[in-house]
Design a protein around this nucleic acid. Structure first.
Length: 465
RNA sequence: GGUCGGAUGGCCGAGAGGCGAGGCUCGGGACUGCAAAUCCCGCUACACGGGUUCAAAUCCCGUUCCGACCUCCA
């Protein structure tokens, strides 16, 4: 294995596979993006971090990368479009559905930025790619992979695609109709596992478009096929997404794309595992949804979340908790302090530094083994034989991929004026030797989540988390 | 029912056949007006039953328990 090769676990072959550029120029990467009908929660962020880590690593190894992530701003998430999520949210907020989409899209980008997740090269929107989807559907009808049903919807003929099920391990003959949701067989589909490529508008009046098959809106899976084939020029070296998209979304996307170009459209399928919060899957119905903004409100550095993610392998389920976030926050603060203290030392041994960096990068190239790489960093931090200057160089180099802003002063939310005044009063009380008063103020500040420390240099404070 | 993962000290969590990762909490000490922070010391675990091996948390077989997914979903 060359020292620029990145190995990733491919869901379809169930093996580690090298990430290679099929056109010899750049790595073409596609990631399923958010549906912008609500704020993305930290579980979504874990999946989006996966794309960031891979692209940062690839770029640090001098690969050229083209990274596309879609924005789903068209409501087609449900078979039953009465419950469509985009339209339901628009109704709930009494707004135009596209206004909802733009609002949450903006917040999605803001959250990425907060977590140092570098932006993709482009974010095509489903609503702006309707023509691409039409072209693709027409092509699939011509090749006999799709048909117009008696209800004017266009369906993909699942049985027409021989390799169906290769990603998820599902087989068409074992897929039972109506497994989970009430499903009424109305006879419009020829086979229960066929899925809609284009849905007729019927009673819907918003978010619909003209099409060769009448007014309607795209099916759930077609946008990713259309966009990835178009924007990445008919081949994807790496396709990313959350584990739950493995089936049916990626299975169906694969059938559509491969049928359309009559060959494999994706080399590697890589899936990020789910994030649990305090033992349970993060979901609105469970009531344990955590947003990036919730971290800031608790005075936790949002990058502590990033560090928590890095401490776990991307394809293991991980259980996040306020305790683990707090621990990561404190580690981050400690590292930033140490990095600042190492900065002034100038005794760099470039060869030694490079050896450590190579070891860390080797861990990352091995299916993004971030926990192992972080363990190396902890070892380097504690080492008594590595000079401060070398430690500084190693941490800064590692941070290019980790993205933890290690060369920065510790994170701190701003202090409200009222609390700043209490701090000032405490300094005066202490100067006057009035320890009863200074202790009272310390308790008062603690009630307001501010912890006070005294040292030879004087009083300092931090948010209690 | 099917598929895929897990089970490691008070808690979280990494483990690549052979030196008990690391973090958090807790206890002791130094420091401090008292604290906090920091530093030092302490707390010796791998679900169960077999097997392979000189040597098993790690490999093999079986058992129990837990989780996720199985046509909304990152």
């Amino acid at each position: 294995m060359s020292n620029k090769e990145i190995l990733l676990f491919d869901t379809k072959s169930r093996k580690l596979q090298p990430l290679v550029s099929s056109n010899g120029k750049n790595l073409r990467i596609y990631s399923c993006g958010p549906t912008v009908y609500r704020d993305a929660h930290v579980g979504n962020m874990r999946t989006f971090l996966l794309g960031d880590l891979i692209t940062r690593l690839a770029k640090s190894l001098d690969h050229s990368v083209e990274f596309i992530q879609n924005i789903t701003d068209v409501g087609h998430m449900s078979e039953d479009f009465v419950e469509d999520k985009m339209l339901a949210q628009a109704k709930a907020e009494s707004k135009d559905p596209f206004e909802i989409a733009r609002t949450y899209e903006k917040r999605f980008h803001a959250d990425l930025k907060t977590l140092n997740i570098n932006p993709a090269d482009s974010y095509p929107k489903a609503s702006e790619c309707i023509d691409l989807m039409h072209d693709l559907i027409e092509r699939l009808i011509k090749s006999n992979n799709a048909y117009v049903g008696s209800d004017e919807c266009v369906y993909f003929d699942a049985q027409s695609f021989a390799g169906y099920g290769a990603i998820s391990g599902n087989r068409l003959d074992s897929l039972k109709p109506g497994h989970r949701f009430e499903y009424t067989e109305d006879g419009a589909k020829r086979f229960h596992a066929d899925w809609a490529l284009w849905k007729a508008a019927v009673g819907r009046s918003e978010m619909i478009w003209d099409s060769p098959w009448g007014k309607g809106f795209p099916g759930w899976h077609i946008e990713c096929s259309a966009m990835s084939l178009h924007y990445l020029d008919k081949f994807v070296d790496l396709h990313l997404g959350g584990i739950d998209l493995r089936f049916p979304h990626h299975e169906n996307e694969r059938a559509q794309s491969n049928a359309a170009i009559n060959q494999d459209a994706v080399a590697l399928w890589v899936h990020g595992e789910h994030l649990l919060f305090e033992g349970r899957k993060m979901a609105k119905s469970t009531g344990n949804v955590v947003l990036v903004s919730d971290l800031k409100a608790k005075h936790i550095d949002p990058l502590a979340l990033r560090l928590c993610f890095l401490e776990n392998r991307y394809r293991s389920q991980m259980d996040l908790s306020w305790d683990s976030l707090k621990a990561a926050h404190l580690l981050l603060q400690r590292w930033r302090q140490k990095v600042q203290s190492w900065k002034n030392d100038k005794e760099v041994d470039q060869a030694a530094v490079q050896r450590f960096i190579d070891e860390i990068v080797a861990d990352l190239r091995q299916d993004l083994d971030t926990p192992r790489a972080l363990q190396k960093l902890r070892g380097i931090e504690k080492s008594e034989t590595i000079s401060a200057a070398n430690k500084y160089q190693i941490f800064i180099a590692a941070d290019k991929v980790f993205g933890l802003d290690l060369d920065r002063q510790p994170y701190k939310n701003e202090l409200p004026t009222q609390l700043a005044q209490l701090l000032e009063q405490r300094v005066q009380a202490r100067t006057a030797g009035n320890f009863a008063e200074s202790d009272r103020l310390r308790d008062l500040l603690a009630e307001n989540k501010v912890v006070v420390r005294d040292s030879k240099e004087g009083q300092s404070w931090d948010w209690l988390i």
